[in-house]
């Protein structure tokens, strides 16, 4: 069946919910088309706010709406939403405890050849460092749907990052293991633990399959809840393995790898290898070309895992 992008799922879930709950408001910053939010804007114009190209304004307006009882979803490219509006996310959303949901679309290197101004490789580090801010990177459309249905129920701030294009399913339709703020063990093994988030989960699962053929048994943990980090899952996965590999579409500092390393280092020390984007503007190319170049694909992950066990 035709796959849809995770951002599209977010619009679909919100649109359905917003039809029944008039307090749900979506806000865009000249980003409705790229966010797949045009249907929302057209069907519920009274619950849609356009701020123009003004991401800081977008987040502060959302916080004001939340303070007065609305349930705002600020939807904008992850690069601008996380770092252009960082102060607003920190002070008006998280610090003031307002129910603002920040939806970062086209995250990571989704924008490919548009370059570093359009990449969000710092958003996990930035957002996770803010008290009260939750950070989620769902792996596929099915998990995105489960996550959004949970987030709609609560009244706390959160940052959700998704990519631009449709990605292969990690889970099976109608059979998605999901518990809020608990990582998902996609496979369980005994030699190596691969902990990934967002769109790196699928290549991690493929790497595990490749490793199996080499006689290496791998656990794959889908850490969609980067914050609150599921520490128990990390300890469980690490204790059952000789080495831990982390994989993320993010800079090498302050992201999932750093956070997992902290937990493993203090709770159950063993070798941890962090796979991430470089500490540099990435090579020009589509996101797929970028991933292949830096080994953020099934082959690269499998190779790193096999080497870590040597």
């Amino acid at each position: 069946m035709a796959k849809i992008a995770n951002k599209q799922v977010i619009c679909d879930v919100l649109l359905e919910a917003a039809k029944k709950d008039k307090d749900i408001v979506a806000l865009c910053s000249d980003s409705r088309g790229s966010a797949s939010f045009t249907p929302f804007a057209n069907e519920l114009p009274g619950q849609f706010v356009e701020t123009g190209i003004a991401e800081q304004n977008l987040v502060s307006i959302s916080a004001g709406l939340a303070k007065c009882g609305k349930k705002p979803y600020a939807v904008s490219p992850a690069c601008f939403l996380s770092t252009r509006s960082y102060e607003q996310c920190k002070v008006d959303a998280a610090y003031s405890n307002t129910n603002v949901k920040l939806i970062g679309i086209s995250g990571g290197v989704s924008y490919g050849a548009l370059g570093m101004s359009h990449h969000s490789a710092q958003d996990i580090a930035a957002m996770a460092a803010v008290p009260n801010m939750r950070v989620y990177l769902p792996s596929d459309r099915l998990q995105t749907e489960c996550l959004m249905k949970e987030l709609i129920q609560d009244d706390k701030t959160a940052y959700i990052r998704v990519g631009r294009n449709a990605v292969d399913d990690v889970y099976e339709e109608g059979n998605v293991p999901f518990e809020m703020d608990k990582a998902t063990f996609v496979t369980e093994g005994t030699d190596v633990a691969i902990i990934a988030c967002g769109e790196m989960v699928k290549p991690a699962v493929d790497a595990a399959a490749a490793l199996k053929e080499q006689g290496i048994s791998a656990t794959v943990v889908d850490m969609y809840c980067v914050k609150p980090l599921d520490k128990e899952a990390i300890v469980k996965a690490a204790k059952g393995a000789k080495a831990v590999i982390t994989v993320e579409e993010h800079a090498p500092y302050g992201g999932l790898g750093s956070m997992v390393s902290q937990v493993v280092g203090s709770e159950c020390p063993r070798k941890v290898v962090n796979l991430a984007l470089p500490d540099a503007p990435v090579i020009t190319g589509t996101s797929k070309e970028v991933f292949n170049y830096y080994g953020l694909n099934a082959e690269g992950i499998a190779k790193a895992a096999a080497e870590a066990l040597k």
């Binding site: 190209i53 690069c79 601008f80 252009r84 924008y111 050849a113 548009l114 370059g115 570093m116 101004s117 359009h118 090579i283 020009t284 190319g285 589509t286 070309e289």
Partner: peptide, 27 residues
């Protein structure tokens, strides 16, 4: 332009001669 490994990316980049500053984020 825009191809793999190219220095001619989709926004101004000051590694190229003639370009003072990187831009792309508006404002």
């Amino acid at each position: 332009f825009s191809k793999f490994g190219s220095q001619f990316i989709g926004h101004p980049n000051n590694k190229l001669p003639g370009i003072e500053m990187n831009s792309g984020s508006l404002g």
